[in-house]
Amino acid sequence: MYPSSALGEFLRSRRARLQPEELGLPGGVRRRRVAGLRREELAPLAGVSVGYYIRLEQGQAPNVSDEVLDALARTLRLDADERRHLHRLARIPQAQTSLPPTEVLRPGLSHMVEAFTDAPAIAVGRRGDILAWNPLAHALLAPHWPVMPTGRPPNFVRIDFLELAFARSLYADWAAKARDDVAYLQVSVSNFPGDEQLLAFIAELKELSPEFRELWAEHPVSNCATIAREYRHPQVGAMTLAAELLRPPDDEGQGVTVFQAEPGSVSQDRLRRLAELTSGSAA
């Protein structure tokens, strides 16, 4: 199961990106078998014994203190998102409550999506499912999908990794979008370790997508709250839109993402044009 090894995978990924010289340690003359900082180099800098740190990576130190986690975060130079992720991984309970296989959209979020008429808006779930979208979001993100698909809902991670031709044509920087997708799922797993459908979805993507498998091993982490991205739409051309993820206070893994262009910009003009085309199609 993912949660039992997630903490160790995350710590190893962050050790691998640091070199001894960055922390004031001698690099040595012998060739290193693995990239990055060794466990015996990290542990003293974080103020813990090497044996304790090894047990921590192996998931055998369940009662690790916040002080130790903060010391590791400082030593590994984690940013705010990564620090929160580290604390969540260390607090995953041994017994997890299973979540229902079908994620039901909260009515309030559905109404919020419907309220946006001049900006693309989607309601997203913890697995990356698009649980609702307005016509403009459908026209922007997945016009090749049915507006009201039956069965499995569209999933932005699945589209980006398994419908590569479409995704690479839509996003000017597909690599950045793909990394953000993986970061979104990494955070979801640490927040909802009992979601067996989420774990199965990740396993499926690892099997079907080499790109996803490689990125997952790097363990990127981000809350993906506000991101500006360039879209290359086949009907109206290139647009730079800022995506804002809005989550309710009682976060259940669902939220609403709204896409907006800078006022007075060419992107705003093109987004308006897309809205006109969408409105005309609907009529």
Rank of each mutant, 00 (worst) to 15 (best):
L164A: 14
P107F: 09
L241P: 03
D250W: 09
R213T: 00
L199V: 02
L42D: 11
T117G: 03
N191C: 11
M112N: 02
Q260H: 10
A142M: 14
V157A: 12
G28E: 00
S188E: 11
V29Q: 15
R32P: 12
Y231C: 07
S169K: 15
R179C: 08
E252P: 00
L11D: 10
A123V: 10
K206P: 01
D250M: 12
G280K: 14
V147L: 11
V104G: 02
S222Y: 08
V48I: 15
L56I: 15
L105F: 09
T240D: 04
F192T: 00
I122G: 13
L245A: 07
A80S: 14
V256L: 05
L162G: 06
L45P: 08
L271I: 13
T97G: 00
K206V: 00
I202K: 02
P62C: 11
P149Q: 04
L42Q: 09
G280I: 05
V124H: 00
Y231M: 02
A228S: 15
E82N: 14
D129M: 12
R31I: 01
R55V: 02
A200C: 05
R32G: 13
L141S: 06
H138A: 08
L7I: 01
R15V: 13
R168Y: 11
W133V: 04
Q268K: 03
L99H: 05
A228M: 02
H138N: 10
L37V: 13
V50K: 01
E67P: 00
H85R: 05
R15I: 12
L99C: 04
L25M: 12
R232Y: 01
L136H: 10
E244W: 15
A243S: 07
L37M: 08
L274F: 04
S265D: 08
L131W: 06
P3F: 02
L7P: 07
P3A: 06
E103D: 12
R74H: 08
L23I: 11
V182I: 11
L45W: 13
G59D: 14
Q254C: 06
F10I: 04
E21W: 08
R12Q: 09
V113L: 10
L42I: 00
A261V: 11
R158C: 15
Q60A: 14
P20T: 10
S188C: 00
S49G: 15
I122V: 15
A142H: 13
H233T: 08
G27H: 05
Y2W: 09
W174A: 11
A217Q: 06
E230R: 12
N134L: 05
L246W: 01
L25V: 04
L141N: 06
A217L: 05
A119Y: 08
A167V: 09
S169C: 03
P153F: 07
F259K: 03
L141R: 01
V182S: 04
A43S: 05
N191T: 08
R126Q: 13
P26V: 03
D180A: 06
Q235W: 06
V236Y: 12
D269W: 14
V182F: 06
S98V: 02
V124E: 02
V64S: 02
